[in-house]
Nucleic acid binder design. Structure first.
Length: 403
DNA sequence: TCTGGGGTCCTTTTCCTT
DNA sequence: TCTGAAGGAAAAGGACCC
C-alpha cells in the first residue's frame, strides 16, 4: 500500500467542437447548430462571399440551413438548442433535417479543433507532466505526479487546470478526480459543464452503483442489450452478479473485466506517451459505386486515398509493413483484408499496389458505399523500401482496371 | 430509415510450419 | 505423399470510443 491513494483525473472539454465553433461565430450562440458533413470553405472565401471583415460579422441569415442539405452524412455534434429538437450525434443529416430544418449546418473543421486541442493540452502539461492523450478533447492526468494534485482530494489542481485552459483558449472543461481511470472518467460527467467532481472509493455504492451499465467506458450498446436481457440495468446489479456467472456468459476475459469494472476497480496506469498502432484513410461515396460500372471513379478515389495516407505517414514520421483495405457494401456489411510484407513503406504507389492486391481478395459483386486504406505495424523510418517484395505479376481479373 | 472518419483492442478463424 | 496434431502468427471481424 502506498502512503497516499492514487488520484487520477479525467478531463473532458465541454461540447468541444461546438464550443470552438461558437468562439469563431459568437453570433450563433443560443441557436440550433449542427456540425457535420461537407467541406468547409476557407475563411477568406466566406468573408468575401458575405462582404464581411471578420467572421463574427457574417449575418446569421447567411449560414446554410439543414433543410438545404443534400446527400449523405451524419451529425458529429449538435448544440443544446439543436438537441432539444431531438437531433444528436451520429444521426443522419437527412433525418435531422426533417426534425429541425432551420438548424444551422456547419461542416466539421478538424484543423481548428486540432489547433485548440494542442493549446489546451499544452496548458495541462505545464501544470501536470504525466498526461495521457485520449483523443482530441479529453485526457487522463496523473495527479499523484503533479504539484498540488493531492490537495483537497485534487480539487486545487483541478481548479488551476480549468483556469489555465479558460485563459488560454476561452473554453471550459469538466474534470473528475478519482482513485483510477475508470472512475475518473465517470466522475468527469457528473457535473458538466465546467464542473469538478471528486470521487473516493467509499463513494462507489452511492454514486456509481445506481448508474446504468452503459455509463461504464467499455460497455457499449451490444453488451448493454445483453445485460438488459438478463435483467441487469444498473452497475449495482452488475456488481451483484458472481464473477463466475459473468465469465460464463461473457467470456473469461470480458466477464472478469465486467466484474472488476462494476466493483470500481481499475489498475491501468496513466500512460504519458503513446505510439499509434495504425494510420488509415477512408471515405464514404456520395452515391454507392459499382466495381465495374464505376471503375474510373473508384480508381481515382482509391489512388487519392493512398496518396493522402502516404502524406499522413510522411507528416507523422511513420512507415508501416501491414497494408490493408476496408470496404463497406451498400447493405452496410463491412469487409477488411490486409497483407504484411517484409519491408516498411510510406510510399503512395507501393501502398496502392499492395492494397490493390488486397482488393482482389474481396467480393466486389455488390455496390460499395465506402472504401478505406490502412497501414499498420508502424515503425519509425530507416527501413528499406518495400518495392522488391511486390508480386511480380498481378492476377488477371475483372477489377484490374482500378484495383 | 439511416447510419462519418478516425482509431484501439479483443476474439475467432485461417494459415503455416513442424 | 497423405494425415493429423499442435502452436504461433497473421488475417478477419466485431465491439467500442471520440
Amino acid at each position: 500500500m502506498s502512503a497516499l491513494p492514487r488520484r487520477i483525473a479525467h478531463l473532458d472539454m465541454d461540447a468541444f467542437y461546438a464550443s470552438v465553433e461558437l468562439l469563431r461565430y459568437p453570433q450563433l450562440r443560443g441557436l440550433p447548430v449542427v456540425i457535420g458533413g461537407g467541406r468547409r470553405p476557407a475563411d477568406e472565401e466566406l468573408l468575401a462571399a458575405h462582404g464581411a471583415d471578420a467572421l463574427h460579422e457574417i449575418p446569421v441569415a447567411a449560414f446554410p440551413r439543414l433543410r438545404d442539405y443534400v446527400g449523405r452524412g451524419v451529425i458529429t455534434t449538435a448544440t443544446y438548442a439543436a438537441r432539444s429538437f431531438g437531433v444528436g450525434s451520429a444521426m443522419g443529416l437527412m433525418k435531422a433535417a426533417k426534425l429541425c430544418p432551420d438548424a444551422i449546418l456547419l461542416p466539421v473543421d478538424f484543423d481548428q479543433y486540432r489547433h485548440y486541442s494542442r493549446l489546451f493540452k499544452a496548458e495541462i502539461r505545464q501544470l501536470a507532466p504525466v498526461m495521457e492523450d485520449r483523443g482530441v478533447d479529453e485526457v487522463y492526468i496523473d495527479f499523484g505526479a503533479a504539484e498540488g494534485g493531492q490537495e483537497e482530494g485534487g480539487r486545487v489542481l483541478a481548479a488551476r487546470l480549468q483556469a489555465a485552459i479558460l485563459a488560454a483558449t476561452g473554453l471550459t472543461c469538466s474534470i473528475g478526480v478519482a482513485p483510477n481511470k475508470l472512475l475518473a472518467k465517470m466522475a468527469s460527467e457528473f457535473n458538466k459543464p465546467n464542473g469538478i467532481s471528486l470521487l473516493h472509493e467509499t463513494d462507489l455504492e452511492a454514486a456509481i452503483w445506481p448508474l446504468p451499465c452503459r455509463k461504464i467506458n467499455g460497455i457499449g450498446p451490444k453488451t448493454d442489450d445483453r445485460l438488459q436481457a438478463f435483467g441487469i440495468a444498473t452497475i449495482g446489479e452488475l456488481a451483484a452478479r458472481a464473477p463466475e456467472w459473468l465469465r460464463e456468459h461473457f467470456g473469461n476475459s470480458y466477464g472478469a473485466w465486467l466484474h472488476e469494472a462494476a466493483q470500481g476497480r481499475d489498475e491501468r496506469p496513466v500512460q504519458g506517451h503513446g505510439e499509434p498502432v495504425s494510420i488509415s484513410r477512408e471515405t464514404t461515396f456520395g452515391r454507392d459505386l459499382h466495381a465495374v460500372h464505376d471503375k474510373a471513379e473508384l480508381g481515382a478515389i482509391f489512388t487519392r486515398l493512398c496518396e493522402r495516407l502516404a502524406a499522413d505517414l510522411e507528416r507523422k514520421g511513420y512507415v508501416g509493413r501491414t497494408i490493408g483495405i476496408k470496404i463497406r457494401y451498400d447493405n452496410f456489411k463491412t469487409a477488411t483484408r490486409d497483407h504484411s510484407v517484409e519491408c516498411h513503406t510510406a510510399d503512395a504507389r507501393t501502398i496502392r499496389a499492395l492494397a490493390g492486391q488486397c482488393l482482389k481478395r474481396v467480393p466486389l459483386d455488390r455496390r460499395l458505399r465506402l472504401l478505406g486504406v490502412r497501414v499498420g505495424s508502424l515503425a519509425r523510418p530507416g527501413q528499406q523500401a518495400v518495392a522488391d517484395s511486390l508480386p511480380e505479376r498481378q492476377q488477371p481479373g475483372l477489377f484490374d482496371g482500378w484495383a
